[in-house]
């Protein structure tokens, strides 16, 4: 009797406690989510006649995005999508995740002081505000007055025009540098959760570093890797900071989807089109996440069979 009453009170209290957060999430996450989907089926805009009288246009925004006549044109949706996929693969998967893993693996074998120094430096790249970092890189890489070119000049190298001639490589390096800290911290925690005795036993058996990594560490931190992949992929898909370096240019060579979306939705003020792109990006992220989760489950199942 008493316990039931207690349960009642606690569930009511629980609801009371959750209401403010629920309202906030409803207002700022759930409602905009469905609103975006609704807007993507209209020709809503800020300027022009559609601003006052937005009309339901069905799938037109989606069909326009994939219209073969404009899909692959310069600054179109196709090149932007393809560029973003490359950006995710190079800067997020190869860059951030792999770099983070390597840094975590290296720092494991360092002295505590060297380890905190290394991690401190890597963390610094992560905690600085976007605008500061963007401006610092811009100033660092400029052809005529940039610090890097001054240094190269001192060493008698010709001036390099990073932001104009190698813009995509630059933003890939930038993003890898910027985000490696998160993966490093996550993997560092994961590695510490591995009982040292496993590795010591392997040492006694004469396993190489690579063998230890492949056969002991990798299976044990698989879950962490999947979490990391999901987060990093989504973040990189949505990252806007490269805009501060290149503004999507020159000639759309760094026109990744967030910048493309910005151009459509907030420079041309085509909210309907912009929302459609947002929905597509969300679906892509969903597909990536499902794929990673399947990968993790298959890994677990395989491990279950093995033992």
């Amino acid at each position: 009797m008493i316990s039931q009453r207690g349960a009642n009170v606690s569930s009511r209290t629980g609801i009371a406690f959750m209401t403010p957060a629920g309202l906030l999430i409803g207002l700022f996450v759930v409602f905009p989510f469905f609103w975006i989907i609704a807007v993507s089926f209209t020709n809503r805009s800020l300027l022009g006649v559609n601003a006052l009288h937005p009309q339901f246009v069905g799938l037109k925004n989606y069909l326009d995005l994939f219209d073969p006549a404009t899909f692959w044109s310069q600054g179109g949706f196709g090149p932007s999508l393809w560029l973003t996929i490359q950006f995710v693969v190079f800067s997020a998967l190869l860059g951030q995740v792999l770099l983070g893993l390597v840094l975590a693996w290296i720092s494991r074998e360092l002295s505590p002081r060297a380890k905190s120094l290394l991690q401190g430096i890597v963390m610094l790249a992560w905690i600085l505000p976007d605008v500061v970092v963007g401006f610092a890189w811009f100033a660092y890489l400029d052809r005529d007055a940039g610090t890097l070119n001054q240094l190269l000049h001192g060493l008698n190298f010709p001036a390099a025009d990073f932001l104009i001639e190698h813009p995509f490589l630059t933003i890939c390096l930038f993003n890898a540098w910027r985000g490696a800290a998160f993966s490093m911290m996550l993997f560092d925690a994961a590695l510490q959760s591995i009982p040292p005795s496993y590795l010591e036993t392997a040492d006694v058996a004469g396993a190489s570093s690579w063998q230890k990594f492949r056969d002991i560490v990798l299976p044990l931190i698989r879950g962490h890797i999947v979490t990391d992949l999901i987060l990093i992929t989504m973040w990189t898909f949505n990252v806007f900071t490269p805009f501060l370096l290149t503004a999507g240019g020159p000639s759309f060579e760094t026109d990744i989807l967030p910048i493309y979306t910005y151009r459509i939705a907030f420079k041309s003020f085509e909210f309907g089109n912009g929302a459609a792109i947002g929905v597509i990006v969300m679906l892509i992220n969903l597909a990536f996440s499902l794929f990673y989760l399947r990968l993790a489950q298959r890994g677990l199942r395989a491990k279950g069979k093995g033992t």
């Binding site: 326009d64 219209d67 006549a69 404009t70 044109s73 310069q74 600054g75 020159p250 000639s251």
Partner: peptide, 26 residues
Amino acid sequence: RMTESVIAGKLTPRAAMGEYAAAVKQ
């Protein structure tokens, strides 16, 4: 966009005009 494609050497004038035509029609 059309002039950018030409001065960046990404497209020939004819191809750039083709993209312009498709975009303006849209």
